[in-house]
Design a protein around this nucleic acid. Sequence first.
DNA 1: GTGGTCTAGACCACG
DNA 2: GTGGTCTAGACCACC
Lengths: 121, 121, 121, 121
Amino acid sequence: MDNHFQSSKPIYLQIADQIFYRLVRKELLPGDKLPSVREMAIQTKVNPNTIQRTYSEMERLGIVETRRGQGTFIAEKADIVDELKDRLTREVLEGFVKQMTELGLTKEEMVEGIKTFTEGG
Amino acid sequence: MDNHFQSSKPIYLQIADQIFYRLVRKELLPGDKLPSVREMAIQTKVNPNTIQRTYSEMERLGIVETRRGQGTFIAEKADIVDELKDRLTREVLEGFVKQMTELGLTKEEMVEGIKTFTEGG
Amino acid sequence: MDNHFQSSKPIYLQIADQIFYRLVRKELLPGDKLPSVREMAIQTKVNPNTIQRTYSEMERLGIVETRRGQGTFIAEKADIVDELKDRLTREVLEGFVKQMTELGLTKEEMVEGIKTFTEGG
Amino acid sequence: MDNHFQSSKPIYLQIADQIFYRLVRKELLPGDKLPSVREMAIQTKVNPNTIQRTYSEMERLGIVETRRGQGTFIAEKADIVDELKDRLTREVLEGFVKQMTELGLTKEEMVEGIKTFTEGG
DNA sequence: GTGGTCTAGACCACG
DNA sequence: GTGGTCTAGACCACC
C-alpha cells in the first residue's frame, strides 16, 4: 500500500538517486528511455507531479533530456555516466572522511573500520 | 552577517552535532556546563528557540541533563562518551559502505578511495 | 542522431521561422514549391504532423498557398516578402527596445551595445 | 479579476523577470526581503505554488536566498545585481543581433532602426 | 509566522 | 501518447 521512502530526504530526490544508481551500475544506458511521468508515478506509487519534479531536476543536471512528445531519455553524452559516478563517489567519500575526522579517527582507523565492517556486518 | 549552516539539515541538529563532536574529541567532558540557551543563541547567532530544541533533543538522548536553575550539563555517566562515539562511528561507517556498495565499488576500492582522498584531497 | 531545435519554442514554429528567413533573404521566391510534407519531415527529422502544422500556420498567415494535388507554394503576391520582412523587423525591434528600456538602458547605450557586440562577440 | 500575464511564457518565469527588472533598476536591493510566498501569491493573483516555483528558480540562480522560517531575501553578494544586469543585457542583445542578422540587416541598419523606433514609436 | 513538499486533478501544446 | 504548467488544498519542519 505505501511506498518505502525515508522521511528525511524529499521523495523526488530519492527517486532521482535510484535512477542515478541504476545508471552508474549500467542498468540504464545513455539513450535509454525512462518510463513516462505517469507510468513512473504508478510504479513508485507517488504523484505524477513528484516524478515530474524528479525528471526536471535530472534534466537541470544534464543527466536526462526530454524530447517533445516522446518522453524522457538518458542523455546521450557518453561521459555522463562516469562523470556522475565520479561525482557521487567523491561526495560520499568526502562526507565520510569529514565526519570520521570530526570523530577523531585516523585514516588507518577508517580503513580498519571498513574492513571489519564489510566482514562482520 | 549570518550563520554558516547547511540548508539540508535542521539547524538545531547541526548544533547538536557540533556538541557531539566536541564531546567525542574530549573537548567537552562529563559534568561540564554548557552555555545557557540565551548565551548559546548569541554565540551561534540563532534563535533561542532553536537552541532550546537542541538541548531538548540532547537530553532525550541522555547526552546532557538539566539541573533546575543551574543550567545544562554533560551527563556524568562515564561511558556516555565512548558509547556515543561508537554509535556515531558505526552509523557513519554503515551509511558509507551502503552507499559505496550501491555505487558498485568493492571493499578494496573503498579503501583505495580513502587513501587517495586523504592524501590528494 | 537527433534534431537541433531549441526546447523553448515549438518546433513547428522554428521550422516556420527558418522558411521565413530564407524568404526574406531571397533564397526562396514567390511561386517556389516547398518540399512535400513527407519530404520536409525527412529532411528536418521531424514528425510529419509537425510539418503539417508548420504549413498550416504559414497558410493562415498568407505566406504560402496549397494547390490540390500539386503541393505547397510560396504565395505569388509580390509584396508578401517585404511585408513579412517589415513585420518581423518591427516585431524584433519593438521587443528589443522594450526589454532594454526595462533594463534601464538608454537609446545611446543600446546603439553602443550593438556596436561592441557585433565586433567583440 | 484576472492577472496580466502573457500566455507564451510560464507565469512563474514572468514573475521572476519582474523581480529581476526591479533588481536591476535598484528598486530592490541586496538584503531586501521579498514578500512571503503567500503574500506574493495574493499580490500577483496566482497560486502560492507558482510563487514558490519562482522563488526556487531564483534561488537556484543565486539571486535570492531563503532563511529558514524568516523568508526569502535578495542575495547579499554585492555583485549579484551587476552580474544579472550584464547577463540579461547580453542575452537580449545576442538574441536581437542574431534575429536581425537572419533577416539580412546590417549593423548600420540595426542602429538606424533603433534610432527611428525610439523616436517615432 | 516562514518556506518545502506532496497530492489530486486539471488544462495545454506538442508529436 | 508525451511533458509542462497551474490551481487548490494539505501537512510538515523550522524559527
